[in-house]
Design a protein around this nucleic acid. Structure first.
Lengths: 237, 237
DNA sequence: CGATGCTAAATTGTATACAATAATTTGCAC
DNA sequence: GTGCAAATTATTGTATACAATTTAGCATCG
């Protein structure tokens, strides 16, 4: 896809097995909001879509369920996750809990080259904000999350990086459900501020900015329970 | 929302599917160190052992690989994870990063009943330290981890709780590989100190004690690369 | 004697078939 | 026409069968 001058965010093993490719494809579709929360993902349909057997489709769906992006209900099937307001709060609470620490680790190890890469990412993000159209919107959503993921990658801790990938992906789902403004853009300047603080080695300020940034994203949510009939409707088709 | 602290550490769904039961059984075996790191887990063997088909065995092994307890190598098979020293460092770095925050959340919500349950757990842990025999040793290992898991459960954040389950399980693997003294016991008094701080609502002290506690566990490790021939041997049956 | 290439065995990767469970529709009584 | 119940349909749960890949053994050659 894009892979903008970094190997940092593309841990794709070229020898990945079929199920993994399908998992990645579906995950991208969910994160970029081409697949709405609650959408049913039947094994047959998924398998048919990718021209593989149900075995692989099932494996991919299982994998996504471990990441919290898909919920599989016994004898009922798999659905794109439909996080409850409570779940949404916990996702952002988790981010507030870990991201300052991750950022601190990253700040201690970051190299000039990596700082340039972060700036590059920011530039790309800004460019996408200018463009219009579905495709640009999707890319913008992805880029916005990629900032946080690159920070995690720079921190050098693979385990926290993995965890952040899960949190960012699930955040996208939450924003799709409860976001009010098309607020994916509102964080852009804050990303820039964080980078600036990093450049100045001002770790404490950077962490504060990160906390505020997460709080801003969360403040844009309207975390009221959706009517159950709406949920039921979402589970149709 | 959160049920009272009764089944706090047993989120087992009684209607769980076959693969999940097998996954749990193998996970217990790994965490309790009945299965050594590097042990080969062939799909046929696992299936035969539990009297199910390779399909379910495979699903269970896949699940464990997402938790980092099993590593599956393409076309080669699944093995009990053999964390490298670097991985071990990252696991404990992750714990230092998240556990103070989790403890802080828990301290803000903890009820007297939950405090009693923590004391209870500590008592049980102490009792097991007194007993001798393999079985008591395994239970002691589990109880030691359960303290951290119960704190996570009390924090009320299911996502962080899940993450801690992963970290504690993987820590057990690391200690099995690199632990020097049979140090699982050395942390017992520190657990008690943390509870005391919690009782006194002294959150900062509790967090400090937690950080020291994790540092102590880590300090007992001898994180030197095992000779590759030793690793190879470990991967043989 | 050691290295290399080939064949055979074992193991995983994937597809398909059958069984079990849940959703839907149909039919009947009221 | 409404409500309940049985049959039908669709979908998931699990097992088995076959293909592809790796590993090991063995023979051959340098």
């Amino acid at each position: 896809m894009d892979s903008s001058a970094d190997g940092l965010l593309t841990p794709i093993d070229s020898t990945e097995t079929g199920a993994q490719q399908i998992r990645d494809a579906i995950r991208d579709a969910i994160v970029e909001r081409r697949l709405a929360p609650g959408t049913k993902l039947s094994e047959s349909d998924v398998g048919g879509l990718f021209n593989v057997s149900r075995t692989l489709a099932r494996a991919a769906l299982q994998a996504l369920s471990y990441e919290g992006l898909v919920s599989v209900e016994k004898n009922r099937g798999a659905f794109v996750a439909y996080p409850s307001p409570e779940e949404a709060k916990q996702i952002f609470a988790a981010r507030r809990l870990v991201e300052p620490g991750i950022l601190k680790s990253a700040a201690e190890r970051i190299t000039p080259v990596q700082l340039r890469q972060l700036r590059q990412l920011l530039l790309e993000e800004g460019r996408l904000m200018g463009e219009r159209g579905q495709s640009a919107r999707r890319a913008e959503i992805k880029a916005s999350g990629d900032f946080h993921l690159m920070v995690a990658a720079i921190s050098g801790n693979l385990i926290m990086q993995r965890f952040m990938e899960e949190l960012v992906a699930r955040s996208s789902l939450v924003i799709a459900l409860y976001g009010q403004s098309s607020a994916s853009s509102c964080g852009h300047s804050e990303h820039g501020d964080i980078i600036t603080a990093l450049e100045q080695k001002d770790i404490d300020t950077a962490c504060d900015l990160m906390l505020h940034h997460i709080a801003h994203i969360e403040a844009d949510l309207d975390l009221r329970e959706r009517k159950s009939f709406g949920l039921k409707e979402a589970f149709e088709r």
